[in-house]
Lab assay of single mutants.
Amino acid sequence: MAAGGDHGSPDSYRSPLASRYASPEMCFVFSDRYKFRTWRQLWLWLAEAEQTLGLPITDEQIQEMKSNLENIDFKMAAEEEKRLRHDVMAHVHTFGHCCPKAAGIIHLGATSCYVGDNTDLIILRNALDLLLPKLARVISRLADFAKERASLPTLGFTHFQPAQLTTVGKRCCLWIQDLCMDLQNLKRVRDDLRFRGVKGTTGTQASFLQLFEGDDHKVEQLDKMVTEKAGFKRAFIITGQTYTRKVDIEVLSVLASLGASVHKICTDIRLLANLKEMEEPFEKQQIGSSAMPYKRNPMRSERCCSLARHLMTLVMDPLQTASVQWFERTLDDSANRRICLAEAFLTADTILNTLQNISEGLVVYPKVIERRIRQELPFMATENIIMAMVKAGGSRQDCHEKIRVLSQQAASVVKQEGGDNDLIERIQVDAYFSPIHSQLDHLLDPSSFTGRASQQVQRFLEEEVYPLLKPYESVMKVKAELCL
């Protein structure tokens, strides 16, 4: 049975990233139509530049190519590739079939990587351009969430054990800070992308030097003109047959890092959902379990974690691919890159769409948070109580021993009897502590235990987050809708 299948058929496997999760716009960027249309555009740009620099290419040939950029006979191309065992030459023939007058000058002087690699770089750039505003929107939604809850005390956790208090907004800023680093890295790697350009079979530009009869300047002009037509500021000066596969490492490393950030955020949300302090959106008709109707599973956060793990592992592909590119190139890269580049971007696209949807509907339960604080705060307040007693004339050592005994009794009630923490009640009825009984409410005010959390939130948002989001103001209103 021949390899390949009808990918629109229910009898043929289709990647869930495309069929179930990723956005239509990201799927289109990695589609065959987008790819092969870009090949034709690159052939047109090459012909236009070659004509401008004096090669015998007519206006009629150029116009014929322009008129057929979208006229792609995919069936013919597939048949040609089956016959020739070469995808680029299959599309040269297919393009030439609908451009008979231009057929002889299509791909003039070029090698397969002229269309293959340059198209990949265009796709990487455009895919990054799709991700950047999506990530900015996630940051914006979380920034709104953090600002609104900047002063809401909550129990902090280290080692997932109760620690000092923080605020809900401050905790959210930990998430935002990681995503801001990801946004900066995505922008950097996007701006650092260079075009492969017009380089020939081993990167020496020998074929173009021959076409222009040894004119170095025209060869350099050709490279520059096509690079500018493709919208790049610069091209690699040095290439082998391909652009260095280190570029793929750079791009997928940034995406993998984004995956790590999203995994951490969504894990926190899942843990908070278990504590009943916070939940992701839950639709009115949504079913959490087929057997347990009360369940409210954090399905979206779980999906993000599941896909983020996949995204983090994909960076190993370009690392290994770059390491086995012998001399000017081997074909070890080809099949692998067809999979890992598309999957990385479709996965990143999915987790950003999902995280935006989550961040637009996060639900906080202040009463649950308050109750958990009441359970733990008495123990945390013991040092403040000791200091207040010393100020009232008591002995630190005597007070410490009193607190120690009462704390152990209260802990026994919590752990052995399943009761509430009654340390404060014990202190309130103990005559030894009568000098500070009137101060206990103040000493137990949760806001006095959150330090500068709310001020940190305000400063972080104003100095770091809002300036970073400013270039994306025009796209901030787009909502994230999930079908599944």
Rank of each mutant, 00 (worst) to 15 (best):
D32N: 14
P162E: 05
L174W: 11
F160G: 07
S395T: 06
C180M: 13
L362T: 09
V315E: 04
R188M: 07
R37D: 07
N421Q: 06
R372F: 03
F433C: 06
A49Y: 00
S454R: 12
K82V: 15
L135C: 06
V168D: 00
T321Y: 08
M380V: 02
M389E: 06
I123E: 07
P100T: 10
L331F: 00
D216C: 07
F74P: 09
L484N: 15
F157V: 03
E148I: 09
L174G: 14
V315Q: 08
R196H: 14
S261R: 02
T313A: 13
A431W: 08
Q51A: 07
A127E: 05
K101A: 11
L186T: 12
K75Q: 12
R338G: 02
G197V: 01
F449K: 10
R404V: 09
T321G: 07
Q416V: 07
V414W: 04
K75I: 10
P16K: 10
D216Y: 07
K147Y: 12
R188E: 06
Q161E: 05
G419D: 08
V405P: 11
I57A: 04
D178T: 06
R371W: 02
A453K: 03
L307D: 04
S454A: 12
S15L: 15
F28K: 09
I386M: 01
T244F: 02
E50V: 07
N336C: 12
V251E: 03
H400C: 05
S67L: 12
P366M: 03
T94M: 14
I57K: 00
R374M: 07
T350M: 11
F327H: 07
R149T: 12
A348T: 14
T111I: 01
L135D: 04
F195V: 06
S19C: 14
A411F: 04
D73G: 09
L355W: 07
H107A: 04
M380T: 01
L222W: 01
F157T: 03
L128R: 01
E463S: 09
Y34Q: 05
C304D: 04
H263K: 03
G288L: 02
D268C: 09
G200D: 00
D248V: 02
I403V: 12
Q205A: 15
A392V: 11
R149L: 08
V413C: 09
Y114H: 03
R188C: 05
F95M: 09
R194E: 03
T166K: 05
R141V: 15
S207W: 05
H93D: 13
L307F: 15
R372S: 05
E48A: 05
G197M: 00
Q205P: 00
C98S: 11
D349R: 03
D117T: 00
R171Y: 00
R188P: 00
C173A: 14
G200R: 02
S23P: 04
D215M: 11
K295D: 00
A291V: 02
I339H: 12
G259P: 03
M312T: 11
I62F: 06
A77W: 06
K295I: 01
L53K: 00
I386L: 03
F449W: 05
T202S: 13
K391V: 07
R141T: 15
K391S: 12
I373F: 05
L314N: 07
K246W: 04
A230M: 02
R371A: 03
A206T: 07
E250H: 07
S140W: 13
T244S: 15
E48F: 03
G54F: 12
Q439V: 12
S140A: 13
G419A: 09
G54P: 03
Q164F: 06
R452T: 12
H107W: 01
L331N: 05
N185F: 07
Q397K: 06
R125E: 03
M76F: 12
E462C: 14
V115W: 00
D32Y: 09
Q164L: 12
F449N: 04
D117P: 00
K295C: 00
L55Y: 06
C172Y: 14
M389C: 08
L319G: 02
T38F: 07
E280P: 04
R14G: 15
M387W: 05
R83F: 13
L275M: 12
T227H: 13
V262G: 08
K187V: 11
S334D: 05
L108G: 06
Q184W: 10
G4Q: 15
H437Q: 10
D11W: 14
I436D: 03
T450I: 11
S253F: 13
K147F: 09
A260Q: 08
T347R: 04
I237G: 07
N357Y: 07
S9K: 14
S289L: 01
L440C: 09
P366N: 09
V262H: 02
T244H: 15
S448D: 12
Y432P: 05
D59Y: 13
L272K: 06
F145T: 11
G288V: 02
L155S: 00
K170E: 00
V226P: 01
E213R: 14
R171I: 00
L272D: 04
H107Q: 02
E25L: 13
G116S: 14
I436N: 05
V368M: 02
D117K: 00
E473V: 14
D223R: 01
C483V: 14
K284S: 11
I436P: 04
Q221S: 10
L55G: 01
G197I: 01
H93L: 06
A77C: 09
G4M: 15
I106C: 07
G5S: 13
A127S: 11
E370V: 07
K199W: 00
D144E: 14
R245Y: 01
G361D: 14
W39G: 07
T350H: 10
R234Y: 13
H159S: 03
S15R: 10
T450D: 02
A22C: 15
V262D: 02
A344G: 13
L179M: 11
V198Y: 04
V475H: 13
S412H: 15
K82L: 14
S112Q: 00
E383I: 04
G96R: 00
L319E: 01
L377F: 04
A322S: 10
F212E: 06
A453H: 05
V413W: 11
K479P: 15
P56C: 09
M65C: 08
